[in-house]
Design a protein around this nucleic acid. Structure first.
Lengths: 231, 231
DNA sequence: CGCCACATTGACTCCCATCAAACATTGTGG
DNA sequence: CCACAATGTTTGATGGGAGTCAATGTGGCG
């Protein structure tokens, strides 16, 4: 007596990607969750919600890319997560969102009612899975932020995007950033100048080619991996 | 027809603390989960598991404190999480543990069988909750690692411990670290010397008093909060 | 006491942030 | 179509915060 579950709910992974997870079992509130879901479209650099907003929905990225970030009172910003199709976000522990969400590209987002989501077993399963994937990604990122040099951070960032794009059909080893230098800097815990200098240095060494400002070809995969320290 | 659930399963929060969560509903595999659970004791600085170990259990901290850390090939270490009573850890996305777990104090840990845990609805609910709490803590920590000065990191660290200890009966504003300077450094993304210098600077300014090496009295709460930037 | 591990302090270096200016890219309107 | 903002990026010069290396201090325990 499986409920019919939109397949898109059952994808999800983290930095810019999505892979399979299963769900949909016994009798629970899944019907409610799906019945109350709705999809919205966003342009590039639109805000989906702000840190501190009341968290009445759970969001799932259907298409596009989203970043979550937090601000310090003096304006310093840290991008805490990059999300791709299938990823779930905006699920808060307390009453309010713990970070802001902004699109990196044109995007479609599905919203579920939080009350219903919390009641549904299948949904909890998907959430648990998602949170776990994101948590492990955060552990990785903590190592990057706490222990890596600027060059290592940038190399790892590019390599990671490359791996996640690899699945897609587009030319291999050409990564589309779809982030400004400032956004990359705020993700990697660096300044825009340091990110730019790192790109230039990689270009100088022939490790990458900047096809356009937001398109990077990885010319020397091996050198890249050495710089990123085991990836 | 509620199954009888050990209350300890239903606690859990993150940095060194635990607060309530509910669980235990309908018919699911919770019985199995609990029947297969067992508790182990550890001394101080014991390893519970290593990164890369097969992840066949899910762990819950009953008593004590545990840190999760990751190592880079060249030996650099990043402590990615601090856990207290009630916290769940060691739940892996894939087949292997993504980080190592080491006790900071004498500890009791309950182990659940992963297969059973994945089947149980109640358990999934607890896991989802736990992952969420930890994920939000990681977001906070990413800000610290990516965007804060050494002094801000140390101040925030102390203040955070103080808040979590506050609930307990012990003297107010006296924080027990139960971590070496090296462990603190590896958590905050600093070196041992920088941590030590920051403590000394705080002492010099009269913001803290070092009662013993691992006991810190926060003498000037206000000054501390200013240093930690809104906490 | 004297060892041992851990912590503190000092001197020096270097990576990255900061400030500033030039350069590139895109879109707009004359 | 080009001039020209407007935004985003790169490059340069400089300084400071934190890392590194080394020596000294300190507390715990056999």
């Amino acid at each position: 007596m499986n409920t019919v579950v939109d397949r898109s709910l059952l994808q999800g992974a983290t930095p810019f990607g999505g892979c399979g997870v299963l769900g949909a079992d016994g009798v629970d509130g899944m019907d409610d969750v799906l019945r109350t879901a709705c999809v919205s479209r966003y342009g590039q650099h639109d805000t989906i919600f702000f840190e501190g907003d009341r968290a009445e929905t759970v969001c799932q990225l259907v298409e596009g890319a989203v970043m979550l970030y937090k601000l310090l009172p003096d304006g310093r910003r840290q991008v805490v997560e990059l999300l791709g199709p299938g990823d779930v976000f905006g699920f808060a522990q307390g009453e309010f969102r713990d970070s802001s969400a902004e699109t990196l590209t044109a995007t479609r987002v599905r919203f579920y009612d939080r009350r219903h989501a919390e009641r549904s077993c299948s949904f909890q399963r998907v959430i648990a899975r998602q949170m776990l994937v994101q948590l492990e990604a955060m552990h990785e990122h903590a190592v990057l932020l706490g222990r890596m040099s600027a060059m290592e951070r940038v190399a790892r960032f590019l390599l990671r995007l490359a791996v996640h794009v690899a699945g897609e059909a587009s030319e291999p080893e050409v990564v589309r950033l779809s982030m400004t230098r400032q956004e990359i800097a705020d993700y990697l815990g660096l300044t825009i100048e340091t990110v730019s200098r790192s790109f230039s240095e990689l270009r100088r060494r022939g490790v990458i080619v900047l096809e356009k400002q937001d398109r990077v070809r990885i010319a020397n995969q091996r050198a890249m991996e050495d710089l990123a320290i085991a990836c």
